[in-house]
């Protein structure tokens, strides 16, 4: 799949933003006043910024409001509804915390559930696609959810919890890679079933339908060199999980240094998740490539 920057930015930042909102909704940390304002500003910048980035890949962003209507069948529509619900509920909860110094517990818990639910709906947009065997697995929502929760813990400053959650997310990423080695080859779909000619002999794409490129080839047949894939996996894993964990468990002396290192851990984690998300798209193979002999 073509790794579109808008979608990578969206899933990376929104995942972190909703992860942070979930922790704030659960009162971890239980903040009020100016401190709360800063926390919520960061969470909303990430969540809303990501959502805005996602509209850049639309052909008609001005019609995006229509996407709230089809929640009965469409995960993309459900994502839109869940995101707006989470943002509205958490805004009310945040207003209470910032301006009234109150903690509306029920509202916060509801907002936390909706925030995590939004990340789940995002994951299901990809998970539902039978046409992309690598994504069509329960591991996909586990990756999205564990990343968002770990990133949220990191941003929320949960010093004792975050290293464990980062380790868990890293482990799930490793399992995702291990279990989805050659998903298209193992899916039972090949050029033989695509053309219906497979039981007559070995099928080979002889001539493409056209000499130039087209939308399908640009969108679905992105091919990533295997050598680069391995390097990027190592880089992404180190940045997203290994280095932030190290920065959090190494005892630094002094509050200032500790805060600096936590900030650095957040930045490294964001860069790492963006790298891993890029791989999530770039490594995914769409079955339509079979028709073009590209698989």
């Amino acid at each position: 799949m073509h790794p579109a920057p808008s979608v990578i930015i969206f899933t990376t930042l929104s995942g972190l933003g909703f992860g942070l909102l979930a922790f704030l909704g659960l009162g971890m940390p239980s903040v009020t006043g100016w401190v709360a304002f800063v926390f919520y500003a960061i969470a909303y910048a990430l969540a809303v910024g990501g959502l805005l980035a996602s509209t850049f890949h639309l052909g008609h962003p001005e019609r995006a409001w229509k996407a709230f209507s089809q929640w009965r069948t469409s995960w993309l529509s459900r994502e839109g509804c869940a995101a707006v619900a989470a943002l509205v509920i958490m805004a009310i909860y945040a207003a209470g915390a910032v301006f009234l110094e109150t903690d509306w517990r029920f509202l916060g818990a509801l907002g936390a559930v909706l925030s995590i639910g939004t990340v789940f709906t995002t994951a299901m947009i990809y998970t539902q696609l039978k046409t992309i065997p690598r994504w069509h697995s329960p591991l996909t929502p586990m990756v999205f959810l564990s990343f968002a929760i770990a990133g949220g813990a990191l941003l929320a400053g949960r010093e004792s919890l975050a290293p464990w959650l980062l380790a868990l997310a890293g482990a799930i990423q490793l399992i995702y890679w291990a279990k989805t080695g050659k998903p298209l080859a193992q899916s039972g779909t090949d050029i033989g079933t695509a053309t219906g000619l497979g039981d007559r002999g070995a099928v080979r794409a002889f001539e493409p339908p056209h000499t130039g490129s087209n939308y399908l080839l640009r969108e679905f047949t992105y091919v990533l060199g295997r050598k680069h894939a391995l390097k990027l996996r190592v880089i992404g894993f180190a940045l997203a999980f290994a280095l932030p964990i190290a920065l959090m468990v190494i005892p630094f002396s002094g509050l200032m240094l500790k805060h600096l290192m936590a900030g650095l851990a957040v930045l490294l984690h964001i860069a790492g998740v963006a790298c891993l998300r890029w791989l999530f798209f770039a490594e995914a193979e769409h079955v339509v490539g079979l028709y073009y002999g590209k698989r």
Binding site: G59, R63, A67, L76, I125, L129, K130, E219
Partner: peptide
């Protein structure tokens, strides 16, 4: 149509083009 492209992603046959 908002041109999100998800229908083309879901089609195994490459029948939809943005």
């Amino acid at each position: 149509c908002i041109g999100c492209g998800l229908c083309a992603w879901s089609c195994p046959y490459g029948a939809r083009e943005l």
